[in-house]
Each structure stands twice: as structure tokens, then as C-alpha cells.
Design a protein around this nucleic acid. Structure first.
Lengths: 335, 335
DNA sequence: CTGAAAGCGCTAACAG
DNA sequence: CTGTTAGCGCTTTCAG
């Protein structure tokens, strides 16, 4: 273990700890000779600075906290995996480390993660999949602690976010279905507590209006962004007398569930019912039929969020940060 | 931001910092009255202890470092995502946090991550996909710093690991192919620098011997655990005069690549060529045809590794830790 | 260019 | 039950 400290090096080199500290950081002025000697002693003694001590002293942790909603087997969610990849890449480029914090974002639990902001563990926080009625959010925004929301849009003071064009993305999907001749289009909503879910619903409604189609309540169900739930609840759609000829799901996982359910009815996708998803997760290209979907640039969202956060931390940017990345239709076999 | 410290609370409560510290940790004895008062003041002032300072003092970071080989878009590797899920679940149960550290495990770079062990940033380290000739490993083992290897087997002093039955798993796959009538069975190797790759090759060879089949060099190619590389190199297999009737790939990603390639030849899986993978990643059930594979309990491996590591850290267990989890054949459509 | 003093915010150990 | 002293290992500040 690491027992050698800056003092050991100093005494062995016959200098003060300060001088050692200076060669460590490469900051202050040190005579070349002295520096060389100190460096060789450090190497010889296998010295490694105690980063915790440094953090305490400089009051920076060099850590980014990535808060993700706690679920079963967290990282299997390909969406989160992609965000993380982006964040991790940027963090690394800037000598930052990232710390994963699964949090309970249920409305009731107040103070659950807001404390992390005060714990000095992170220099900034990235919040993934925040909930609309999360009671900690306003407090966090007010605190001035650097943070950024991923896939959550809120144009209020203190809020920074990176999102994608959810409304427009949904309209893209609807347009595609309309052009394919569909007039009875159902919608599978995600969690009502996420802004992107609301935005996609908005896009759905916008399109209905634009195309002069009627909004029917029985055509809209909520799948909570869960494959299994979408599987269960899509039954109601399939039992309808006027069965929809197309189903727009607000994420790919739900689309997969819906397709599975349609198959149990002996119906074919896309011949009997077309299905379109949202996100473009890894599996979507492998599913049967391959899933038509609206791509979100998730990896880029992660990169953008991390970059912005680092800029906020370094005061290199004036808040608020509000970025909206483009979505894109990817046509495959399911429509 | 957090400006209120333990001293603020102390002075406001008219007690010493120690008393406050005691109610914080819940350890030492404190009069009920005093404790109550202090607690209310802490709440009122919105106090949150500085965890960095605490770490420095108690000489524990409450952090687990998870070192994963640096690659393009890290977390998209479903294998790593599953390990992480397991680790994260256990860490959380024990009030530990996890920190992700992408590392360059290429042989040349010495000292790349060994320093982390000396940085006091982590109380222990989980090494995922370590390389056989990683020059840091012996040093790490010697240092006595708590660490555990995931999917890496090395029965030497100082090495702790959690692995799965790779040899046996490979034999399971081969047996299945043999029973299906295959006698010309090719093998796609993973990175030669990982023990599990070697073990699977060993299982392949064992089985050939057991079934009285000849080992042919031209039947073995190396796909480096990369879908694209497997796609490229499997060409040589398909061009063979005596083309194999089955291909055993040492991971699912490579199996997907091979299947893709087979399709470009206008051949069908499994009718013309059977393909079997290893791991059972998420996509394998969605691929076309759905992939027959050998399941590794990856999530459990992550959990087991984290549990063992925490025990090592807490001195609750005598090293070495050497766990081998079971593999299982999952028959789907590709064989 | 180098060093001394003080402090980051907390806790361990001992004394009362 | 509570307080005092000292210290974790580094850096900032100021003086030389």
C-alpha cells in the first residue's frame, strides 16, 4: 500500500514538502537540478500522491457524478450505456473520473440525491432520465451546483440540459406512417414523468391534427418505457374493433414488446400492423422484423452533456446550457 | 454550495466538533438531548458532511474502482454492462460507490493503472477483461492491495478471481454440435491475451479428441472478440474446399459477425452451416436466426466479484478467492 | 527559486 | 457523556 508521502520524498531529497508539491503539480518554479533529483527519488520510492488529500486541499474532486434511476440491472439499458459512453469519453479527455450513482428518483423521496451535491464528492452532476416531479430538482437548480440534465427539457432559471428533438422526431415517425398509407395510428406512451415522453406524445398529437386525423383515446396506451408493460397493455389495442394499422411506440424496448404481442395474435408486422420505435438502440437492427425507428444521437448527447458540464465547472461558459440534438428517421422492416 | 462544516454546527449547538462528529457517525455515546439538538441544527442548516475530508481522515474512500479496457464506446459491450450491473448492485447494498476507469491494458504501457491502487482513491479494484501479459498484474498482486479479476484465471499467489467454466462451457457447445451430427467443426478464437479465450480453445481441442476428430489448423481462426474482425476473417473458413458444417465462436459478437458473413455467401444458418456462440448477450435472442450459445452468468459474476472484494477489504475472508461459476447451453435456432 | 505557517473538514485517541 | 489534542496528506499564501 501507499505509505510514502510527500514528506518522505521531501526529507529524502533534503528539501521542503512545498518544493516536492511544486514538481508534482508542475506549477511553481523549481530549479531544474532540484526537480530532477526529486523526480528520481519519487520514481525510486514508487511515490504516488494521495488524491483524496489533494482533493480536500484544492477543493476539487475531479469527479463527475452520473446519476441514473435505480432499476433492475442498470446498465443493460442500452440507452444508459450509450449516454455513459459519451460522458466517459469526454471525462477522460479532461482528466476527470466518473462515478455512477443509482438513485431513487421517485417523487416521494426528498433529499435522496441532492446531498451528493453537498458532499464534495463531485464537481458536477449529470442527471439521466430525471423525473418531471422530482422534488430535488428545484432545490438543485437553486443551489448553483453545476449540473446538467440529459433528455429532460425545462426552460427555467438554473436548469441546464441536453435533449433531442423529441417533438419533431415523433412527427417524423408519424409522417412516415402517414405516407405509408396508415390512418389508424395508435401511440404507446412512455413514463408520463419524463419530458421526452410528453414531447413525443405532443408530436403524435401535432401530426394527427396536421393530417386531419381524429385523436382517439382508445388508441393511446401507456407502456412506461418498459418492454413487458408494453407487451401486456398493447392487448387492448389489438382487441379493438377498429384495430389500428400502425403503432408508434415512444421507445424501442416498448416496440419490441408490442411486436412480440402482435405475433401472439398470429398477425404479421408490418403487413397487418406496422410498428415504429424511438431511440435506435442496438437491438433494433437485430429484431425481427428489424425495427424502423427514430434515432436519437444518444452517444453524442452524453458527450455534449459532459462537455457542457465541464465548461460550467470551469466557468468557461455562461449558463443556461440548452442544447437540442437532431433526430433522424431510420427505416427498416417493421413499417 | 456546501459551506457549513462540522464547526458551524458545533458552535451553533454550543458543543465541540467531536460531539457533532459522534452524532454524524452514530458511534460514540451522546446524550439524547444533545443529539436531538444537534440533529435539528444540522437539518436546519442543511448540513452535509464533506465526504472527501472524512475519507482522508478514516483512510477509506468507500469507493470501488472498476477497471475496464478502453475501447470505442465502452459500455455498449453488453458483457461489460452486465458485469457492471452486478458490481453496482452489491456496492450499493454496502454503501460503496463505484468509479469507472477505462484503462489501456496493452502490454507495453506499464504503470498505467497500478498507480490507482496507490492513489487512495479506491479501497479495492475490480479488473475486467485483464490481459494475460499485462505487466502491471504481478506488481498489483504483490502489493497486497485488494483486487479481484473478472473472467481471468490465474492460480498464483496474490491473485483473486471470479471466472466461469470456460473449458467445460466450450465442451458443452462442442457436444451439442457433435450430437447434431457435425464432424467438421471450425473454431473462432477470441483475443489470445485473455485466459477465457484460451480456455475455450482448450475445450474445443478436448472435445475434438474426445470425439476422435482431427484438429485442423485451417479450421481455427482468430476473431479477437470483435464482430467485424470475425466477419472479415471467417471468409477463409467459407472458402475452404472442405467447408466446415459448424462454427463454434468463442463469443456472441463474433458469432453475429460470422452469421452475417455466411449470409453474404447465400448460405443458410443452420441448414448449411450451424453457428454457436458464447456468453448469451442480450442481442443473441433477437438475432436472425436466434443464436444458440453458452450462457455465462455474467451478472452473477459481477455480484460475486464485488462481494468477494468487499470481504477482502473488510478482512472478512482469507485469500485467495477463486470462484468458478457454471455455464449452460442455450439452444436456439442457429444450430 | 525555496521554505514556514496555516489550513482544507473530518476523526482517533485519550483525558476528564 | 464530552472535550482537547493531534493528525490524515496535500496545497495556498506569504515571506525570504
Amino acid at each position: 500500500m501507499n505509505k510514502t508521502t510527500i514528506s518522505d520524498i521531501a526529507s529524502k531529497a533534503g528539501v521542503s514538502r512545498m518544493t516536492v508539491s511544486r514538481v508534482l503539480s508542475g506549477n511553481g518554479p523549481v530549479a531544474e537540478e532540484t526537480a530532477k533529483k526529486i523526480k528520481s527519488i519519487m520514481a525510486e520510492m514508487n511515490y504516488q500522491p494521495n488524491l483524496i488529500a489533494r482533493s480536500l486541499s484544492i477543493r476539487k474532486s475531479m469527479n463527475l457524478g452520473v446519476l441514473i434511476p435505480k432499476t433492475e440491472q442498470l446498465f443493460l439499458d442500452n440507452y444508459i450505456a450509450q449516454v455513459l459512453s459519451g460522458v466517459s469519453d469526454i471525462a477522460q479527455e479532461n482528466d476527470y473520473r466518473i462515478m455512477l450513482v443509482p438513485v431513487n428518483q421517485s417523487c416521494s423521496e426528498k433529499g435522496s440525491y441532492i446531498n451528493y451535491a453537498r458532499s464534495n464528492l463531485f464537481d458536477g452532476i449529470i442527471l439521466v432520465k430525471a423525473k418531471i416531479n422530482d422534488p430535488n430538482l428545484p432545490e438543485l437548480a437553486e443551489s448553483g451546483f453545476p449540473f446538467i440534465l440529459v433528455n429532460y427539457r425545462k426552460n427555467e432559471h438554473g436548469y441546464n440540459y441536453v435533449d433531442s428533438e423529441n417533438v419533431k422526431g415523433a412527427e417524423l415517425a408519424m409522417e412516415h406512417l402517414y405516407e405509408k398509407g396508415h390512418r389508424k395510428i395508435a401511440f404507446v406512451e412512455g413514463t408520463k414523468e419524463e419530458t421526452n415522453s410528453r414531447d413525443r406524445l405532443k408530436g403524435y398529437k401535432n401530426s394527427l391534427k396536421k393530417f386531419g386525423l381524429e385523436y382517439r383515446e382508445e388508441y393511446v396506451i401507456c407502456g412506461e418505457f418498459e418492454k413487458e408493460i408494453a407487451y401486456e397493455r398493447s392487448e387492448s389495442l389489438l382487441n379493438l374493433v377498429e384495430r389500428p394499422t400502425a403503432i408508434f411506440c415512444s421507445d424501442d424496448y416498448m416496440a419490441l414488446g408490442v411486436i412480440e404481442r402482435i405475433k401472439t395474435y398470429g398477425l404479421s408486422v408490418p403487413n397487418d400492423i406496422a410498428v415504429i420505435g424511438f431511440d435506435n438502440i442496438e437491438i433494433s437492427q437485430f429484431s425481427r422484423p428489424a425495427l424502423t425507428t427514430v434515432r436519437q444521437p444518444i452517444y453524442e448527447i452524453g458527450k455534449t452533456a459532459a462537455t457542457a458540464l465541464l465548461n460550467i465547472i470551469g466557468n468557461k461558459i455562461s449558463q443556461p446550457v440548452r442544447k437540442i440534438l437532431k433526430t433522424k428517421l431510420i427505416i427498416r422492416e417493421s413499417t
